[in-house]
């Protein structure tokens, strides 16, 4: 693939629930190796955008991934093609142990060597999960649950990682740790599309970012530029 060609290209994306439009025709793309952040308030349409890309909700417009439209592609096939999604609220299986969560996520691993390599990587990134692998996932702390959710996504060896509010409900120190790991994952070659209410963290690590307000993109630019933008400062960074 040509490096300048976007890995993910979204044109005129719409998502509605019962006739109410949540996403009103947004367009953006993500180049290979980039971190793209979408920031915005609650209800701006951020989660709907990610759910559309993963095939969890019907959508209009066009979503093209690696040159192919994702229209009509089933959720599990999208994962197989290399898009992993860490959903809102992390969605870990609370009654399963850490290891069972990881085993289920290893469904897409084609061979045992690939699985071992992926497990090895996950436990290197998050040694704490290795210590707790027989523990019930519901008893993990919020930060550990986020690590587990990220680990499950990484087991699919994704080319594109979709993250829905990785900082949600976490203490600032834990958020810093998680974002440090995200940058590490990105440097190892995974493109990241990140949505955040915590605009500061999202913009800090993003190459490019978009501000979403009631279903439309109102501002786009480099992450560092948006952090300096007066409108963003007023609305999302607490002045």
């Amino acid at each position: 693939m040509n490096a300048a060609e976007p890995m993910l290209s979204i044109q005129g994306l719409t998502v509605s629930y019962d006739g109410i439009a949540a996403v009103k025709g947004i367009s953006f793309d993500a180049l290979p190796g980039e971190i793209v952040a979408i920031v915005g308030a609650n209800g701006a349409g951020k989660t709907s955008t990610l759910r559309a890309i993963s095939g969890l909700t019907p959508w209009g417009g066009s979503i093209v991934y690696q040159g192919e439209s994702l229209r009509g592609v089933a959720v599990h096939q999208i994962v197989e093609r290399g898009i992993a999604h860490v959903p809102e609220g992390r969605a870990i299986f609370g009654d399963f142990t850490v290891m069972e969560n990881l085993r289920l996520a290893s469904w897409v691993c084609r061979s045992r060597p690939v699985l071992w390599q992926a497990m090895e990587r996950v436990f290197t990134l998050f040694p704490r999960l290795k210590d707790r692998r027989e523990q019930s996932a519901g008893t993990l702390s919020g930060g550990e649950q986020q690590m587990l959710a990220l680990s499950r996504a990484l087991l699919a060896s994704p080319k594109l990682l979709l993250l829905d509010e990785p900082s949600m409900g976490l203490a600032p120190l834990v958020v810093r740790d998680i974002f440090r790991v995200l940058v590490e994952i990105n440097r190892a070659g995974t493109t990241i599309l990140l949505i955040e209410q915590n605009a500061y963290q999202g913009l800090r690590i993003a190459n490019r970012a978009h501000v979403l307000e009631t279903g439309s993109i109102v501002l786009s630019g480099r992450g560092s530029e948006l952090m300096q933008d007066q409108r963003v400062k007023d609305a999302y960074l607490g002045g």
Partner: peptide, 17 residues
């Protein structure tokens, strides 16, 4: 067993639900 807890999350693991 995963589907009995959260069907959508299982699909996101790449499982053909």
């Amino acid at each position: 067993r995963g589907i009995s807890m959260d069907m959508k999350a299982v699909a996101l693991m790449g499982v053909p639900v």
